[in-house]
Design a protein around this nucleic acid. Structure first.
Length: 430
RNA sequence: UCCAGCGUAGCUCAGCUGGUAGAGCGCCUGACUGUUAAUCAGGUGGUCGCAGGUUCGAGUCCUGCCGCUGGAGCCA
C-alpha cells in the first residue's frame, strides 16, 4: 500500500493508501471512531468502524489521544460530511505512540502559555499555515534573485565591529577578544557586489536593542541585495519588483494557507509596480497635514509612520531622507547636501518599514570624513575603505526584513508568529 | 531604560465595601454507527507569583521583588 501525504489525497480517490501522522482530534461514538489525522501537509478525517477492523484493532484505536502518532491504512472516499471533502475508511490502524496530557488543548490559550510551548504550538493549523508561507516567501526571494543573475555571497555572522555604529550589538567572547553578532550583512555585500556585480546575502541579523513591541525581534532575517553601478532609482525598482514577485508567488502557491488565516487578499492582489513614491520632504508635509507634528530633519516616530502608512493602500516608498537620520555610508544627494540618496519601503495596514536601502558613498575622502563625523573606529573599516581605493564605482542596495514582510502578507497582529522560534527581549526559550 | 496593565486548578477566567476557594474546558470511568471545539452521566483537580506588613481574620488592603503582556524610544 502506498504511503501518501494528506495534501495529495484527492488524487487517490477510490484507492487504498497508507497515511502516517498524528492525531489532531479524536471523537468516539460507540462502535465508531473519528480520527482527524495530521501529517504536516494537511488534515483528513479517518473513520474507524468496529465491524471493519475487528475487536482487537478497535480496542487499540480507542486508546488514541490527541497528538498520539499512528499509521493508518484505508480507502479514500469523497464525503461531504467530512471536513476537507475527503475521508479515509480505515482498514488497518497501527498506533506508534500514545501521548498523555498534551498541553495544548482544543480550547483557548493565552499568548504566554503558547510561547512557552512554541515547539508544540507549531503543530497547530494556524502556525503551520504561517510557517509554510514563510517558506514560500524565502523560496520566492531566492528564485527571484537567481533569475536576475544575483550570486549568493554569505556575509559573516561574527563581525569585528559595529556595521553602522548606531544600534546596540550582542557581544561575544571570541577566543578572548570581543566580537559581535552582525546587525547587517550589507557592508560585506558591497565587497561582494564589486566582485560579482550583483550579489546578495540572506541570513539572520541581531539587535540587542531593548525593544518590546509587536514589530521587534532580537534575531530576525533579512535579504540584502547589492548592485554595482546601480543608482537609487534602480535599487527602488528592484525592491518593488522583488516584493511583487513574492506576493504573486504566495497568492499562487499558498492560497489555502492564506484562506486558513482568513486573510483578505484584495490588497495583496492589487499590489503592482510602480509603487507610490514620496520624498521625505513631501512626507513631512503630509504627516503635518494629517494632524501629527513633525519637524523637517527628524526621523519618523511610530505615530508619524502609522499616519503616513494609513494614507496609502499599497506598499509605498519614501526617498531622500535627511542625511543626519541615516547611516554614515549613505551617499548625499548632489542636488541637496542635506539629503541622502536613501529610501524606505513601508507596508500598508500599519506594518511599517519593510525595506531600507539606497546609494552608497563611493568616494574615499568623503567616506573617511563621514567615519570621523560618526566617531567610528577607522582601523576597523580599512577593508571597507579598500573598496573605494580599488575600482570604486557607484553602487546601491537594500535590505528587506523577512518577518515584517510575512506579518503583513498574513496580516498578523504580532511579528513573533512569523518565525519558528522567536527571540525577543525576554524570550530565549524554547 | 521608561510608562501602563495583569499574575487564582493542567488551560481560560470569576471571586463585590476583608469573613475559611468557584465555573467552564481538559483529564479519568461509563453510554452511543456520522461526529464536526460532539453530546449525556459520574469522578479528578489549589503553596491564590514570592517575601514582608496592616488586621481578630488577607485571594481581596499596603510595601518591595520576580514574571508575563502591551506601548514608547530605536529600528528591519
Amino acid at each position: 500500500m502506498e504511503w501518501v501525504y494528506i495534501e495529495d489525497i484527492g488524487k487517490y480517490e477510490g484507492k487504498d493508501v497508507e497515511l502516517r501522522g498524528w492525531v489532531f482530534n479524536f471523537r468516539r461514538k460507540g462502535k465508531l471512531l473519528f480520527i482527524i489525522l495530521r501529517d504536516g501537509t494537511g488534515i483528513v478525517q479517518c473513520v474507524v468502524f468496529k465491524g471493519d477492523v475487528g475487536e482487537e484493532q478497535f480496542e487499540k484505536a480507542k486508546r488514541l489521544t490527541q497528538e498520539s502518532s499512528v499509521i493508518i491504512r484505508g480507502s479514500v472516499k469523497k464525503d461531504d460530511r467530512a471536513p476537507g471533502g475527503y475521508e479515509v475508511s480505515v482498514k488497518e490502524i497501527e498506533p506508534i505512540f500514545i501521548t498523555k496530557d498534551y498541553p495544548i488543548t482544543k480550547k483557548e490559550h493565552g499568548v504566554a502559555f503558547l510561547m512557552e510551548h512554541r515547539h508544540l504550538w507549531i503543530r497547530s493549523r494556524r502556525q503551520n499555515a504561517i510557517l509554510r508561507i514563510r517558506s514560500e516567501v524565502i523560496q520566492a526571494i531566492r528564485d527571484f534573485l537567481y533569475s536576475r543573475k544575483f550570486t549568493l555571497v554569505d556575509s559573516p555572522i561574527f563581525t569585528p565591529s559595529a556595521c553602522e555604529g548606531t544600534t546596540t550589538l550582542f557581544e561575544v567572547d571570541y577566543f578572548g577578544k570581543p566580537a559581535y553578532l552582525t546587525q547587517s550583512g550589507q557592508l560585506y555585500q558591497e565587497a561582494a557586489a564589486l566582485a560579482f556585480g550583483k550579489a546578495y546575502c540572506f541570513g539572520p541579523a541581531f539587535r540587542a536593542e531593548k525593544s518590546k513591541t509587536r514589530r521587534h525581534l532580537t534575531e530576525f532575517w533579512q535579504v540584502e541585495p547589492e548592485i554595482a553601478f546601480a543608482n537609487l532609482d534602480e535599487a527602488m525598482k528592484l525592491a518593488e519588483e522583488m516584493l511583487v514577485y513574492i506576493i504573486e508567488r504566495v497568492l499562487e502557491r499558498r492560497k489555502i494557507e492564506l484562506e486558513r488565516l482568513q486573510r483578505d487578499t484584495k490588497i495583496l492582489e492589487s499590489v503592482k509596480t510602480p509603487f507610490p513614491r514620496i520624498s521625505y520632504t513631501e512626507a513631512v508635509k503630509r504627516i503635518n497635514e494629517l494632524g501629527e507634528s513633525l519637524e523637517w530633519g527628524e526621523d519618523f516616530g511610530a505615530p508619524h509612520e502609522t499616519a503616513l502608512a494609513n494614507s496609502f493602500d499599497s506598499p509605498f516608498i519614501v526617498h531622500r531622507f535627511p542625511a543626519q537620520v541615516k547611516a554614515f555610508y549613505m551617499r548625499r544627494d548632489p542636488e541637496d547636501e542635506r539629503l541622502s540618496l536613501s529610501f524606505d519601503m513601508l507596508a500598508p495596514e500599519g506594518y511599517g518599514e519593510i525595506v531600507g536601502g539606497g546609494e552608497r558613498e563611493y568616494d574615499l575622502e568623503i567616506l573617511l570624513k563621514r567615519i570621523k563625523e560618526h566617531n567610528l573606529p577607522e582601523e576597523a573599516f580599512q577593508w571597507y575603505l579598500d573598496l573605494r581605493r580599488y575600482g570604486s564605482v557607484p553602487h546601491s542596495g537594500f535590505g528587506l526584513g523577512i518577518e515584517r514582510t510575512i506579518a503583513w502578507i498574513c496580516k498578523l497582529p504580532h511579528i513573533r508568529e512569523t518565525i519558528p522560534f522567536p527571540r525577543m527581549l525576554d524570550t530565549v526559550y524554547p
